[in-house]
Design a protein around this nucleic acid. Structure first.
Lengths: 339, 339
DNA sequence: CTGAAAGCGCTTACAG
DNA sequence: CTGAAAGCGCTTACAG
């Protein structure tokens, strides 16, 4: 089947290609009646402008890019990215933008991908996820004039606009709740050490744990996997002085931690309280249901997409603070049983 | 920063643009020495060919498309798609192809997306997931000359090449195992009714359950969510004649089912055996660990990508049968306790 | 083996 | 309000 071109539309409408272009793009330079006729014909013969020709003529590529550098295994485990992508997509597709996705091996490869996309003019802008301290992508994207929105922060975003939520506040809220319940020995199983949001959560954890009520605290990094969550939990619970509460940086590790506690014969929440970061349906399926930090991840992605599109249109875009995670208490947290 | 073009490379190398193009694309028409020099200069000034110009000149778009029509919530829950995408990506990016992703509301919208992509020449080919009986996408893609590989089947794929695995065999293997354990009352919580693979699994289930050993059987559809899995399980276990074994079409529902059984005071596996389809790490984190149908989903995606790229190169591509899911027995299955 | 030139399908100043 | 034309940056026959 032959693809119709703008020339086909012009011929049938009896106008020039320029007129068709103006009509299709809502530009002035064509009468309302002609515009109507042109649109009807385009619709009728199923015309869609060739995206390459459009992009080459200086118009936009109508695509934005997202490169992710987590191992496939982790991407599958965590609902986070798929939910984020769903939210991004909902916003993009309503504006006729496509999302170009690339999964790469490491942050270095991500830099190369962004640089290549820029050279290829393949995308009009990009998202930056999984920000790290001194992230090489930030100065590179500032240097190139490739519109970019960082999903994350605050801090280390350079001059790039960013959409962020206050992870530190969520950690503080959680710890204050645990302290109020009477917990005095609190541990945390954190995420990947290099990531900025991990560091922000870690600092917040340490700051709150300096309060006099907290007698013992420990924050341990992990790779986000259930295996790692289980391993760290086993170690924490086997120590002579074990925590009465553990917070986990994702839900998979929290569920793994719950399983370990049960396998070791510890009552949850009686002998161990558990809090999960990110509230997937699974948190409500286990017994006891997990107290979790909930947030609307698709909405987060939607905000990021909206900001990137505004940036591409040339609007001034600054930082946008999203709502942030809030604590949803369930059966896995309670006052520690006197022991 | 100004993007370097092919003219910049040509000028610095003292050759024509044509020569640069031949050198870059590994075409004959340029001496080895000149090719070397050109490549070195391109590398040095960070030249990447403008993808729009390339696509417009009849070369490929160097991108393939995937449209998904599941609600955001479900996409996040199931590791399947993210793992599939990871596998697809690994193969594509090693060949310099990008993946264009679009999440849409329903199958109708998917048809429109493919048609638009074709008109825009935005992609060189597409994947088709979540095949349905009498899927409108199949005749449409056959009519357009847009290379397409169906991920799924067998059957209802028309003349399109497809990558599939034998779900029916996996159902049969599972049921024969349960029957051998001594189960005589077996239920299944299936996936979305419209999907072909759901229907294939359902037929296989019903076929095996016609065997004389099976005294009672029931297959119930669901929407893949944990809530639905829990609801159906509760209903199954509350009936006067309840099953001694249930198999679930995904792991989230199986975990939900396990939780329901425990909440109802039923011993797993003593009073109820549970089998999950798709073996995520979570299956090993719950207690007892779930017997599951395991498969290598990233590899599945990789095969599909390899076939699509071959099709785009103009090679003959037929059906490819992937390895398929195999049963991994764990603690959630055992002979039914005499009751 | 190399160069000059046409052409892909749009968009957008520039004249009428 | 409309038309003719240049140009985006490549690829690829076509001459030399």
């Amino acid at each position: 089947m032959k693809r119709p071109t703008i020339a086909d539309v012009a011929r049938r409408a009896g106008v020039s290609k320029g007129a068709v272009s103006y009509a299709l793009n809502g530009q002035p330079g064509v009468s309302a009646a002609t515009r109507q006729r042109i649109l009807a014909i385009a619709e009728e013969i199923g015309f869609n402008p060739n995206s390459a020709a459009r992009a080459l003529s200086g118009a936009s590529a109508r695509a934005v890019g997202l490169a992710l550098s987590r191992p496939a295994r982790i991407l599958g485990i965590e609902p986070f990215f798929m939910e984020l992508i769903s939210g991004v997509e909902a916003e993009l597709s309503s504006r006729g933008y496509a999302l170009t996705l690339q999964v790469v091996a490491d942050p270095e490869a991500e830099v190369a991908v962004y640089r290549r996309w820029w050279g290829e003019r393949r995308v009009d802008g990009v998202f930056v996820c999984d920000l790290r301290a001194d992230d090489r992508r930030v100065p590179m994207l500032e240097e190139l004039d490739l519109p970019a929105v960082v999903i994350g922060g605050p801090g280390h975003t350079g001059a790039l606009p960013h959409v962020w939520s206050d992870d530190a506040a969520a950690v503080t809220e959680t710890l204050e709740y645990l302290i109020a319940l009477g917990h005095r020995r609190i541990a945390r199983v954190g995420g990947l050490p290099g990531l900025l949001h991990t560091e922000l959560r870690t600092s917040a954890f340490q700051r709150v744990c300096e309060r006099p009520e907290v007698r013992w605290s420990l924050s341990v990094p992990s790779d986000y996997s259930g295996e790692d969550g289980a391993r760290v939990t086993r170690r924490l619970l086997s120590a002579p002085e074990r925590p009465t509460a553990i917070m986990y940086d994702n839900d998979v590790m929290a569920i793994a931690g719950l399983a370990v506690a049960q396998e070791m014969g510890l009552a949850v929440p009686g002998e161990l309280s558990i809090v999960a970061w990110d509230d997937s349906p699974l948190c409500q399926l286990v017994h006891p249901a997990l107290t979790a930090l909930s947030r609307d991840i698709p909405a987060y992605g939607g905000h990021a997409a909206r900001h990137l599109l505004a940036l591409i249109r040339g609007e001034q875009v600054g930082a946008y603070q999203d709502e942030g995670a809030h604590l949803t208490p369930r059966g896995s947290t309670a006052p520690p049983r006197a022991s």
